[in-house]
Design a binder for these strands. Sequence first.
DNA 1: TCATTTGTTATCATATATGATAACCTGATT
DNA 2: AATCAGGTTATCATATATGATAACAAATGA
Lengths: 72, 72
Amino acid sequence: MNDVQLFIRIGDNIRTIREGKGLSQQDVAAMCNFEKSNMSRIEAGRTNITVKNAYKISVALGVKLYEIFDVE
Amino acid sequence: MNDVQLFIRIGDNIRTIREGKGLSQQDVAAMCNFEKSNMSRIEAGRTNITVKNAYKISVALGVKLYEIFDVE
DNA sequence: TCATTTGTTATCATATATGATAACCTGATT
DNA sequence: AATCAGGTTATCATATATGATAACAAATGA
């Protein structure tokens, strides 16, 4: 799997979990203390996310960190 | 959990898996195309690792990406 | 003793993630 | 039409991850 595919898979995981919880990007961004534009960038797979931000998001979404990284 | 604790947990995961496979930091670093000093930094939890490097390491170790991020 | 392996730390330059802002779009609501 | 919510994209400055190098230490083996 190349980098872009990896980033997109992770972004998709986050989006799926977020939507499953009925939260908006703005909701999650606020809980993470950053702007909604950054959430959009992450979900679109346009960044090589760090574990620090991934963890913040996992806490906001109420899931375990590894759920975000569940890719094949 | 604070950032430092998070980084250390991840570093410990990587180290445990690596040692379980009987590989040196040098072995894994070579498979990832970077230097052993960088592996040491990652395992020591002295960096906020990106998913790109975490994925490279997971491939080198022959485990799923999420295993590296299995933290409480 | 000497060389090798393994791991650690400090330091540096460079690449890039981050956080913020603004502009924009779509769809829904008033 | 006008407003709002939700999401996207581009751009910027700043912080920091990365990759490399070098020096070091401890353990091991020749």
